[in-house]
Design a protein around this nucleic acid. Structure first.
Length: 818
RNA sequence: GCGAGGGUAGCAAAGCGGUCAAAUGCGAAAGACUCAAAAUCUUUUGGCUUAGUGCCUUCGGAGGUUCGAAUCCUCUCCCUCGCACCA
C-alpha cells in the first residue's frame, strides 16, 4: 500500500481553490445557474456537529457536480449569529455575546474549510453584523409602511427560561421550543406583530406546487389550518356575540354555548349570582396555558347568562369551559351535544339536554354517543329534510339576510409575534414619542446600532443603556424613547438567502437584478424542524417583498430536501447531552475530509437517518488510499473494450444516482468501478473515473487529476458524458458467465474435497471456441485460488482425461479438476 | 385519535411485478501471503442437496390480484416522526 499524506494533499488543494477563486461565481448572462443553499447554522460554541457536516456535504456534492456540468453555481454560507445561547453564555461568563459569536464563527469557518466545502465566501452573511442587520431594520420599516407590522395588546406566550415572549410557532405542545421542559406562560402584553395571516391563503395554496417532502407540506397545511364555516350571531342581552362553526347545519341542536375560560370578556357574561362559582372554577384550572393536554377532562361552569337562539329564539345557557381556545374564532363555541363528541361529553357531565337534528340518510343513529357524520336534517324547522351540505348554505344565507350570519374562513395561523425582550438581536427601529406616538426611525438613520454596554438581569437589557433609550422624535424632535425590544432571530433568517445574491451591497438589502438571476433557490437543504417556523416566515417574506416590488417571484425554495439524522453508534440520535457525538473535525484530521464526506453519503439514502459506524469510516478511508495507490500502479496504455464499457457505464450510473439524490448508490458504483483499473488502461479512462469521484472526494480527485498531467483544476472540468457506443451489453452477459463459472469451480472443488478429500491441484476450463476470450486464466486463478487453465473445447492439445470438455455449453464452460 | 414515513438475511442498507435467495458495506468464517500478526487479495455467509444440479423456506403477519410478488391491492400488528380539544 502506497502511503500518502491526506492532510497535506487536502490542505494543498483547499489553498489552490482559494487562490484560483474557483468558487467565486458571479452572474453570467445567458449561462444557466443553479442555486444551492444549506440552511445557515447558528454558530454555537461547540462547533460543527456531524449533522452539519452531513448537510453541507450533501449540498457540496451537488454544487461541485453542477459546477462541472457548466452551471453558474451559487453556493454560499452564512451564520444565524444573533440569538439567546451566545447572550446567555456571555451573561454567565460576564463577557459579551459578540466575543462568543465571533469566535464561534471563526471556528465554524475553519471546520467548513477543512471539509473542502465549495463556498463562495465573499457572499457570507452574518446576521449580527450591522452591515446585515441594518437591512433587517430597513425591511422592518418597509413592512411597517405596508401595514404588515403592527403593535397590539394581547395574550402572548412567554417563556420564563428565555425571559422573553415567543411566537406561536415557537411553542410546541405548550412548551418552549428551546426549553422542552418549560411550560409557556400566557401574559397580556403589548407587542410587535407581523401580519403573516394576511398571506394565509396564499401560503396555503402555494404549498401544493412545491417540490418539498410531503410531510413538511402537510405540516405547513396543518399549521395554517384553513377551516371554512359560518359565523353566527347570538344575542346575549342586547349585545351580539359571534360564534364560528363549520357545522351550522346542526344549529337547531344547540343546547348551550361555551365561552373560553381564558376569554378576556368572560366576566361580562357572569351574573352576580354565579360569580363565586365561576371564580372557584377558574381557580381549579391548571395554569393558563392555551394548549392543554388532550386527555384533560372537559369541565365548565354556568355563567348565569343566556343567549337567544338566532332562529328559534330559545334561551340558551352560556357556560365557561376549559376546552375552548380563547383566541380562535371568537373564543366561544356552540354546544351541539348530539353531533359533537366533546359537546356530548360536556352535556352528559352537566346534564344539559341533547337534541338530535341530523340523522343518517340510512338507518338510525345511536343515542349513547354523538352522531358526528353528516346526514339529513330533522327537527330543524323549515330546513328539515335537507342534506347537511345544503343546510349549511341555506341556513347561513337565511341568517345572512338578517345580518345574523355570514360565511367565514378561519385559520389557525396567527400573526407572528416578532419582538423579543432580549439583547442579542436586531434593535427594532422605532421610537415612542409622547406627542407623536409610535414613530419609525428614518431610513437614513439606519442602522440603529446595538449598544455594546447593557446591564443584564434587569428586564430588557437595552432599557438599561440610557444613551440608547433616550433619543429625539424623528417627527417633532422632542425627547423620545427608543424601542428596547429586539427582533426575533427568525426575522434575520427570513431573507438571508436573498442577501447571498448581493451580500456586500451597502445601498440596499439586495439588487433586484442579482436576485432575479440567482433565485429562487433550486435546492435548499436543512432539518425538518423548521417546517412551521423558518419555512413559513421565509415564504411569507418572499410574498410580502414581492408585493412591495422588491422581488419578482412567489416562492423562495422550489425544492426542499430534508437530510436524515445522524445517530451515534448506540443507535440514538447524536447529541451532546447523550454524549454519543462524533466530532467531524476530529474525523477529518484522522481519516481526511474526503473519507468523511464519502462515508457520510455512503451509509444510506441522504434523506434517511443512519447510524454512525467507525468501522465503516475506516473502510472508506481504506478505499481512498486504495484509489490513490491504484493510480500509482497503473501503466497507462490502451483500454480494452471491456474497460471502456465499464467506465462509460459508471458515468451513466453515477450521473443518474446524483440526479436522483441517491448518493449512496453512487458511492457503491464508484467503489465497484475501481477494480476496472488494473494493468493496462487508457489514461483518459482513468481520468473519467477520477472526475466521477470529484464531487465526493474533491481533494483526492484534484491530486490525481494533476498527476495525470492536467494543468487546470478538476473542479471546473466538464462532467463526463457517457459514450453509449462503448457500452456493450454483451460484456455484462459475459461477466455474469464468468461469475457463474467461478461459483461452479468453487462448487466442484468443494465437492471433490468432500468426496475424495482431495484439495484439487489444477482446474481446467473448456469453453466454446468463440467464448475463449471471455475467460482469463489469470483472473480465474486469482478468484478461485487454484491454478486454472483455460482452453477451447476444440483445442487438440487440451488436457482432458475424463472427456469433460464435451459438456461445455454456450455461456457455461465445461470443467475438470484433478 | 389524525397524518406521514418505515418494517428486507448477524447488523446497516439497496431493490419496489419476472433476469431475486435478493446489490453494497460492516461483522463473522475459511484460504492465500507472512516466522507470526496487521494490511491486502480470494472465497463463504437461509436450508437441504448435486462434479458444476435441483429443491425447499424466506423480504413484519394474514388474505387477495397475477401465468408470476420483497415489489400491486385489502386487512392487521409493530416502530419512528409530526399534529393534537381550532368547534
Amino acid at each position: 500500500m502506497v502511503e500518502f499524506d491526506v492532510k497535506k494533499i487536502e490542505l494543498k488543494w483547499q489553498k489552490e481553490w482559494e487562490k484560483q477563486k474557483v468558487f467565486e461565481i458571479d452572474v453570467a448572462k445567458g449561462k444557466k445557474k443553479y442555486s444551492i443553499v444549506e440552511m445557515y447554522p447558528y454558530p454555537s460554541g461547540s462547533g460543527l456537529h456531524m449533522g452539519h457536516a452531513f448537510n453541507y456535504t450533501l449540498g457540496d456534492i451537488l454544487a461541485r457536480y453542477k459546477t462541472m456540468q457548466g452551471y453558474q453555481v451559487l453556493h454560499p454560507m452564512g451564520f444565524d449569529s444573533f440569538g439567546l445561547p451566545a447572550e446567555n453564555a456571555a451573561i454567565k461568563a460576564k463577557s459579551h455575546p459578540a466575543l462568543f459569536t465571533n469566535a464561534a464563527i471563526e471556528n465554524f469557518i475553519r471546520q467548513q474549510k477543512a471539509l473542502g466545502l465549495s463556498y463562495d465566501w465573499r457572499r457570507m452573511v452574518q446576521s449580527h453584523d450591522p452591515a446585515y442587520y441594518r437591512w433587517n431594520q430597513y425591511l422592518f420599516l418597509q413592512l411597517y409602511k405596508k401595514g404588515l407590522i403592527y403593535r397590539k395588546h394581547s395574550p402572548v406566550n412567554w417563556c420564563p427560561d428565555c425571559e422573553t415572549v415567543l411566537a406561536n410557532e415557537q411553542v410546541h405542545q405548550g412548551m418552549c421550543w428551546r426549553h422542552t421542559a418549560t411550560s409557556i406562560v400566557i401574559k397580556n402584553l403589548e407587542q410587535w406583530f407581523i401580519k403573516t395571516t394576511q398571506y394565509a391563503d396564499e401560503l396555503l395554496s402555494g404549498v401544493e406546487a412545491l417540490d418539498w417532502p410531503e410531510r413538511i407540506k402537510i405540516m405547513q397545511r396543518n399549521w395554517i389550518g384553513k377551516s371554512e364555516g359560518s359565523e353566527v350571531q347570538f344575542m346575549i342581552g342586547n349585545k351580539s356575540w359571534p360564534v364560528f362553526t363549520t357545522r351550522i347545519d346542526t344549529l337547531f341542536g344547540v343546547t348551550f354555548l361555551v365561552v373560553s375560560a381564558q376569554h378576556a370578556k368572560l366576566m361580562d357574561l357572569v351574573t352576580p349570582a354565579q360569580n363565586k362559582e365561576v371564580f372557584a372554577f377558574l381557580k381549579t384550572l391548571k395554569g393558563t396555558s392555551e394548549k392543554t393536554d388532550f386527555t384533560l377532562e372537559k369541565e365548565g361552569v354556568f355563567t348565569g347568562s343566556y343567549a337567544q337562539h338566532p332562529i328559534t329564539g330559545a334561551q340558551i345557557p352560556i357556560w365557561a369551559g376549559n376546552f375552548v381556545v380563547a383566541d380562535y374564532g371568537s373564543g366561544m363555541v356552540m354546544g351541539v351535544p348530539a353531533h359533537d363528541a366533546r359537546d356530548f361529553a360536556f352535556a352528559q357531565k352537566y346534564r344539559i339536554p341533547i337534541t338530535h337534528v341530523v340523522k343518517p340518510a340510512h338507518g338510525t343513529s345511536s343515542s349513547t354517543q354523538a352522531y358526528l357524520a353528516e346526514g339529513i336534517l330533522c327537527d330543524s324547522g323549515s330546513f328539515t329534510g335537507l342534506t347537511s351540505a345544503d343546510a349549511r348554505k341555506q341556513i347561513t344565507a337565511f341568517l345572512q339576510k338578517k345580518k345574523l350570519a355570514r360565511f367565514v374562513t378561519n385559520y389557525k395561523l396567527r400573526d407572528w409575534l416578532v419582538s423579543r425582550q432580549r439583547y442579542w438581536g436586531t434593535p427594532i427601529p422605532m421610537v415612542y414619542c409622547a406627542d407623536c406616538g409610535i414613530v419609525p426611525i428614518s431610513e437614513n438613520d439606519l442602522p440603529v446600532l446595538l449598544p455594546e454596554k447593557v446591564t443584564f438581569g434587569e428586564g430588557n437589557p437595552l432599557a438599561t443603556n440610557k444613551a440608547f433609550v433616550e433619543t429625539k422624535c424623528p417627527d417633532c424632535g422632542k425627547k423620545a424613547r427608543r424601542e428596547t425590544d429586539t427582533m426575533d432571530t427568525f426575522f434575520d433568517s427570513s431573507w438571508y438567502y436573498l442577501r447571498y445574491c448581493d451580500a456586500q451591497n451597502t445601498k440596499k438589502p439586495f439588487d433586484g437584478k442579482q436576485v432575479d438571476y440567482w433565485l429562487h433557490v433550486d435546492f435548499y437543504t436543512g432539518g425538518a424542524e423548521h417546517a412551521c417556523m423558518h419555512l413559513i416566515y421565509a415564504r411569507f417574506f418572499t410574498k410580502a417583498l414581492r408585493d412591495m416590488k422588491l422581488l419578482s417571484f412567489d416562492e423562495p425554495f422550489l425544492k426542499l430536501f430534508n437530510q436524515g439524522m445522524v445517530h451515534g453508534e448506540d443507535g440514538v440520535v447524536m447529541s451532546k447531552s447523550r454524549g454519543n457525538t462524533v466530532d467531524p473535525l476530529t474525523m477529518t484530521q484522522e481519516y481526511g475530509a474526503d473519507a468523511l464526506r464519502f462515508f457520510l453519503v455512503s451509509m444510506a439514502g441522504p434523506d434517511k437517518d443512519f447510524v454512525w459506524s467507525s468501522t465503516g469510516l475506516e473502510s472508506i478511508a481504506g478505499f481512498i488510499s486504495k484509489v490513490y495507490a491504484r493510480s500509482t500502479e497503473l501503466r497507462f496504455g490502451k483500454s480494452s473494450p471491456l474497460v471502456q464499457h465499464k467506465v462509460h457505464k459508471a458515468i451513466l450510473s453515477v450521473t443518474e444516482a446524483i440526479e436522483q439524490m441517491k448518493y449512496n448508490q453512487a458511492t457503491i458504483i464508484l467503489r465497484e468501478t475501481l477494480s476496472v483499473f488494473e494493468g493496462d488502461v487508457a489514461k483518459e479512462d482513468f481520468a473519467l473515473y477520477v472526475q466521477l469521484l470529484a464531487p465526493f472526494c474533491p481533494h483526492l480527485a484534484e491530486e490525481l487529476w494533476s498527476r495525470l498531467g492536467n494543468k487546470k483544476l478538476i473542479a471546473t472540468s466538464p462532467w463526463p458524458v457517457a459514450d453509449t457506443s462503448k457500452i456493450t451489453p454483451a460484456f455484462d452477459i459475459a461477466e455474469q458467465a464468468v461469475e457463474k463459472t467461478v461459483s461452479d469451480i468453487m462448487n466442484v472443488l468443494r465437492l471433490v474435497k468432500e468426496k475424495t478429500g482431495d484439495e484439487g491441484e489444477q482446474v481446467y476450463v473448456y469453453t466454446l471456441p468463440k467464448e475463449l476470450a471471455q475467460y482469463d486464466a489469470g483472473a480465474l486463478t486469482k478468484r478461485v485460488g487454484k491454478p486454472v487453465t483455460v482452453c477451447a473445447v476444440n483445442d487438440p492439445k487440451k488436457h482432458d482425461p475424463q472427456g469433460k470438455a464435451s459438456k461445455a455449453k454456450p455461456g457455461k464452460p465445461a470443467l475438470f479438476v484433478e
